[in-house]
């Protein structure tokens, strides 16, 4: 095909033809098939089980603030419920105490839960995120939560199936990705 396309007359002829269907590799019925599998996110919706309803609502609001629209489209609150539910206790505590602290501060200052306050009100509660970054872990529960949430929510969003589909124009992208090491027997 390359040699054919290199000839001017042939390339002009090819240009006039209707677009061909994607090339299908020649298959031998005796070969083992290579099927195109999907992932769990295309097959169902996550079931939340770790955060209580107030914490889950606060997490949903936090995701919405961190990455408007994209994080919720990528079902990041549900994904973080799964991740943190599987994490060691100290990491779980960062999220549990941080979300509880956000709700407490919100109710104290604005008489509403964190899920129900305005963007401007939320911005006041997210003040610790404006502190310069250091290795030192913030001392207050909200600061600790925001340190973790900022990184995790971004990564969970940008690595999601939904964002990849959106970036690929509506279809699940197929292809290279990165090298993944399987468990070695």
């Amino acid at each position: 095909m390359q040699a054919l396309a290199a000839a001017p007359a042939a390339s002009a002829l090819l240009a006039q033809q209707p677009a061909a269907a994607p090339a299908q590799p020649a298959t031998n019925p005796d070969d083992l098939p290579k099927l195109d599998f999907s992932v769990a996110d295309e097959g169902g919706d996550p079931i939340q089980s770790f955060f209580n309803p107030r914490q889950a609502a606060a997490l949903r609001r936090l995701c919405e603030l961190m990455l408007p629209i994209a994080a919720l489209n990528a079902k990041v609150p549900e994904f973080m419920d799964f991740m943190i539910g599987r994490a060691p206790t100290d990491r779980q505590q960062i999220w549990l105490s941080g979300l509880d602290a956000l709700n407490y501060q919100s109710e104290t200052r604005f008489q509403k839960s964190f899920a129900d306050i305005s963007d401007a009100q939320a911005d006041a509660l997210l003040a610790p995120i404006r502190e310069p970054w250091t290795y030192d872990v913030p001392g207050d529960p909200v600061g600790r939560l925001l340190r973790a949430a900022k990184a995790d929510i971004r990564l969970a969003t940008f690595n999601s199936l939904e964002l990849h589909i959106s970036a690929a124009g509506g279809k699940r992208p197929r292809g290279q990705g990165q090298l993944y090491w399987l468990p070695i027997e």
Partner: peptide, 12 residues
């Protein structure tokens, strides 16, 4: 080793 997209990983 295999090629995988991030969304194909168990933990994104």
């Amino acid at each position: 080793r295999v090629q995988k997209q991030s969304f194909e990983l168990p933990f994104r």
